[in-house]
């Protein structure tokens, strides 16, 4: 086993992991605040990949030349619109179900997933879509017997992922919105009695989570260049795996889980078998849930009798 291959797979894994982590944030925040797994979250990410390509093309058509400006505007627009999608989904498919049976939000979420997938398929066509290569160039690092390549896009991915995580953490810990979120998470009834509009807070959490998935969508599209209407499902489950692995409900856990899963998957496909990398990821999900459902950073739940 060569060191430079390990290094290369580790770099790829880190990139993949940052993406998973960004999407996992949405699962973890929503789970933290209303204890529900937002199954449609993966599809929001899928929508964001389309939005990325659309806004890139649109901004280019308007004659914007400077690449950083175009990318930054695309990122902002995509985040705004995916947040809108997240908000709308919560408003239409989840909010009316508060206080309903435990199965109801799940079924509604599966319904929304089918709707989003097919809405995009019908509007945008079933074929693969893509964007041109925007950032070329790579760094080469000398490792023992070969080189490890790090493309500029990959550097951008890590930087943007870190920056958006930092902003999100800051929001959660240093703004009144974040305080209300954490209060609602601890005890919704009490927070409401203290004047927190919990409905608005929950919707905001959905929107924030969706915006993070939007960031992931932009970054993935920059890195891989192509996507279709079906990418949300598998990536969604893997991001959920990351959230569980890190400890669902915990923000740093989501990022950590994402990186661990990304590395594991990347090393597995590098050294064991590429065909079974998804099987490996799902197997991790199943095993973690069986043996350590509280994940790496989560606290174990005490059953209420």
């Amino acid at each position: 086993m060569d060191l430079h291959i390990i290094g290369q797979q580790a770099v790829n894994g880190l990139i993949l992991g940052s993406i998973y982590g960004l999407i996992a944030v949405g699962y973890t925040m929503v789970y933290g605040i209303i204890g529900m797994i937002n199954f449609a979250h993966g599809e929001i990410y899928m929508v964001s990949a389309y939005l990325t390509a659309i806004f890139l093309a649109l901004l280019t058509a308007f004659g914007l030349q400077s690449l950083p400006v175009v990318l930054f505007l695309t990122l902002l627009l995509t985040m705004a619109f995916t947040a809108l999608y997240g908000w709308t989904v919560e408003r239409l498919a989840y909010r009316p179900l508060r206080g309903s049976t435990r199965l109801a939000p799940w079924i509604s979420a599966i319904g929304i997933s089918l709707v989003l997938q097919n809405y995009v398929r019908i509007s945008q066509g079933a074929r693969n879509q893509g964007i041109p290569v925007l950032l070329e160039g790579k760094f080469r690092l000398q490792a023992a017997a070969g080189t490890v390549q790090i493309t500029h896009v990959q550097v951008v991915i890590v930087l943007v992922a870190l920056a958006s995580m930092a902003v999100l953490t800051w929001i959660m810990h240093h703004t009144s919105l974040g305080r209300c979120c954490r209060a609602t998470q601890q005890d919704r009834r009490m927070a409401e009695l203290l004047g927190v509009d919990s409905g608005r807070i929950i919707a905001t959490v959905f929107a924030l989570g969706a915006a993070m998935a939007g960031v992931a969508g932009v970054l993935v599209t920059l890195n891989y260049g192509s996507f279709d209407f079906y990418i949300g499902f598998v990536t969604g489950i893997k991001a959920f795996t990351a959230a569980v692995l890190g400890g669902i409900g915990s923000l740093p856990g989501a990022m950590l889980g994402g990186v661990v899963l990304g590395l594991a998957e990347s090393l597995f496909s590098g050294f064991v078998n590429t065909d079974y990398k998804d099987v490996f990821a799902f197997a991790i999900l199943v095993l973690v849930l069986i043996w350590r459902p509280s994940g790496l950073l989560g606290r174990p739940e005490v059953e209420k009798v």
């Binding site: 498919a93 009316p96 599966i110």
Partner: peptide, 13 residues
């Protein structure tokens, strides 16, 4: 499928 999905959501609501 779009209609299935919508029906599932509406049904739950």
């Amino acid at each position: 499928i779009l209609v299935f999905g919508l029906a599932m959501v509406l049904m739950m609501v």
